[in-house]
Amino acid sequence: MEQKSVNKTNSNGYTFLFAVILVVVVASVLAFAATSLQPTQQDNVRKEKMQNILATVGITTDRDGAKKLYDQYIVEEIALREDGTADESVDAFKVDLAKELKKPVNEQIFPLYVAEVEGSKYYIVPLRGNGLWNAIFGYISLKDDINTIKGATFDHLGETPGLGAEITKEWFKKKFENERIFDDSGNLVGVSVVKGDIDPSNKEDNKVDAISGATITGDGVSDMISERLKRYLPYFKKQKDIKVAIN
């Protein structure tokens, strides 16, 4: 009888049953953990978004302080339609650009954040485009002339470390400070990331120096800046206090 019991526990059926039970238990634990952590993860994503928006206007903070400073400096969140009118039924902060870009332009929502810092007004535009391997994204803030960049932040989903991934570095983001997005004729051209002898002190050439070995990522940054900013022209043209002539 003892030998028969040993053989039974060593059988394939017993091993298979044990494996199934183990998989079910592990899956249940992981599912419970994921469900339990989801609110915390969503809150962290929300705070990180606030941090990135604030960073474009020179306000740095950790996650714990993000909400307080965001409420202090961001005075408006606007969900815009293609014609520059606001859609008050849409929460601008919750707009997912990855989903919006899959829609026809006339169905997209364009979030805009307005900040006031030490008496100055800034307009913050979310960015999203394509890098070498996957999506690149970020935020860019404009001073109240709607021509001069206050600051920018960039991130990515899969660019190459040491090459395209350098767009997240502070030294690269600083290149965009005080660059102009309109050319001398008043056409919105954005800021191009280009190779060559670029004078970093020339803020009116609509160019910044590229990252060595990251041409495609740099082109992606250039394209997403000009493409996204152009979507906001209908809104900016409606504003009476804009100081720059826009074609």
Rank of each mutant, 00 (worst) to 15 (best):
G164E: 00
I198Q: 13
S192N: 11
G151H: 02
D145H: 06
G151R: 05
G196W: 04
L188G: 01
A165T: 02
N187S: 06
K169G: 00
N178S: 15
H156R: 05
L188Q: 05
T153N: 07
G162T: 09
F154N: 03
I198F: 11
G186I: 08
I140N: 13
V191D: 04
L163M: 11
F182T: 01
I181T: 01
P200S: 14
N202G: 04
I181S: 03
P161Y: 09
L142M: 10
I167M: 02
L163I: 07
E179I: 06
T168I: 05
E177V: 10
A152F: 03
E159Q: 02
T153F: 07
P161S: 09
L142H: 09
E170I: 05
I167N: 04
N147A: 00
W171V: 15
D199T: 11
T160Q: 04
W171A: 14
E166W: 00
E166M: 08
I149P: 03
I149E: 00
S141G: 13
K195R: 14
N147L: 04
I140W: 13
I181C: 04
T148D: 07
F172I: 10
L163N: 10
D199M: 11
L163P: 07
T160W: 00
S185R: 11
A165R: 03
K175G: 14
K169S: 12
S201G: 15
K174E: 15
K195S: 15
T153A: 05
E166D: 07
D183C: 10
T160R: 00
S192Y: 06
N187T: 09
G162W: 01
K150V: 06
D183A: 11
I149M: 04
E159T: 01
V191R: 00
K173S: 11
S141C: 06
D155F: 08
I146G: 01
G196H: 07
K174V: 09
I181W: 03
T160C: 05
G190P: 03
L142C: 09
G190H: 07
E166K: 08
E170A: 12
I146D: 01
P161I: 02
L188S: 04
G151N: 05
L157A: 04
E179S: 10
K169L: 05
H156Q: 04
T148G: 09
F182D: 00
Y139H: 15
P200F: 14
I146N: 06
D197Q: 14
T168P: 01
N187R: 08
I140F: 14
L142Q: 06
V193S: 11
I198V: 15
D184N: 14
P161T: 09
G162E: 03
E170Q: 11
T148Y: 04
V193N: 11
V191W: 09
A165C: 05
I198M: 13
G196Y: 06
P200D: 15
A152S: 12
N178L: 12
D144R: 03
N147K: 09
Y139G: 13
